[in-house]
């Protein structure tokens, strides 16, 4: 399944990877394994792609160690990757304030080591897991996904992490598990936005997916981006990435994952149910009541080239995910 979607989203040449590296990686993924092959791989493939102007950062020891065995470019996009500086200084992370520059300014106060995640609800193995124990049983993958914000702008980001399905499977969901509920850290001292008296979001931030959405191979748990550990303002140390849904579904700084029987309450839906649905699939045909979703501004843009492009159904991942919603009225379940 994964290999299939990789083929569909990748092209021979892209902005990240030289073709030779890409092709050798194909061979690698094609099933040939072993020490002999590792030696024949170009160095770049082992070290990972070299993104321009990335602020280097050292992650926790387990992260750096795990990085050496990453499947780089496991999923690629055909578009140009957003510059690191833009992806890290233009964020919606209301826990740190409501301006786009607030997260970069204030997220440094967030303590991400050590970090543990509670897994509970309809699972055979509930408990509080150290982040490394949750992640390291799976190999790191790099996935280059389009990110479409509900505010009609978009970016292209190379994430590092593991499939969400891996974590869920390891928790051994029971037959009653129909939805997955996620929760962000609540800590007003480290997250000043949560201390605002005029904030409209009820903390902690909550999100959710239907079980089949969560088990879909494209649903991803990221711990890094641009070949490094996640910057705090992008949701460190653990965030969800669901590329076919609006960005707000991709909850950040996750402390709790619960498998539940009924559809969970989600933050934006609680705040304005007519504006933000539970599904929140990217859909150019269903406008936000306050603005059109037919197009998006691909960032970065410039004054006289707003870079307006057509928004794709399911953010361009329709071939992979449309089947999940067969027979559903997407105008009703927006």
């Amino acid at each position: 399944m994964l290999i299939r979607s990789r083929n569909r989203h990748s092209i021979g040449e892209n902005d990240v990877t030289p073709e030779s590296v890409y092709l050798s990686r194909r061979t690698f993924l094609g099933g040939v394994a072993g020490i002999g092959l590792a030696a024949s791989l170009p160095r770049a493939a082992l070290a990972g792609p070299d993104y321009d102007d990335v602020t280097k950062a050292k992650g926790p020891e387990w992260f750096e160690a795990h990085l050496s065995d990453t499947r780089w470019n496991a999923v690629t996009a055909e578009e140009k990757i957003t510059p690191f500086d833009d992806a890290t200084h233009y964020n919606n992370f209301y826990e740190f304030g409501s301006n786009k520059s607030d997260p970069a300014r204030y997220a440094g106060q967030l303590n991400t080591v050590p970090w543990s995640v509670t897994i509970d609800g309809e699972v055979g193995k509930p408990g509080q897991y150290a982040l490394e124990n949750l992640i390291t049983p799976s190999r790191f993958e790099e996935r280059i996904y389009r990110l479409r914000c509900v505010e009609a702008w978009s970016m292209v980001i190379p994430w590092l992490g593991i499939p969400l399905a891996d974590v869920i499977k390891r928790a051994e969901p029971t037959g009653k598990a129909k939805y997955v509920r996620f929760e962000t850290l609540e800590h007003p001292k480290q997250m000043p936005g949560q201390a605002s008296r005029f904030g409209l979001i009820e903390w902690p931030y909550r999100e959710g997916l239907r079980m089949d959405e969560a088990m879909h191979p494209l649903a991803f748990l990221a711990v890094g981006m641009y070949g490094r550990v996640l910057p705090n303002q992008n949701g460190a140390p653990l965030r969800l990435v669901v590329p076919w849904k609006y960005g707000f579904k991709s909850i950040k700084s996750i402390v709790r994952i619960s498998l539940v029987e009924s559809q969970p309450e989600t933050s934006w839906h609680m705040l304005a149910p007519d504006e933000y649905g539970f599904y929140a699939n990217v859909n150019p045909d269903v406008d936000h009541p306050r603005w059109s979703q037919a197009t998006e501004r691909r960032l970065p843009n410039s004054l006289f080239n707003p870079n307006v492009i057509d928004t794709q159904p399911f953010n361009g991942y329709a071939e992979d995910v449309a089947g999940l919603y067969q027979g559903m009225d997407l105008r009703k379940f927006y």
Binding site: E151, G193, S196, F198, G199, L200
Partner: peptide, 12 residues
């Protein structure tokens, strides 16, 4: 007021 998404501090 109608463009505010999540925080009313500035508007207030």
């Amino acid at each position: 007021l109608w463009v505010v998404r999540a925080d009313l501090a500035e508007w207030s």
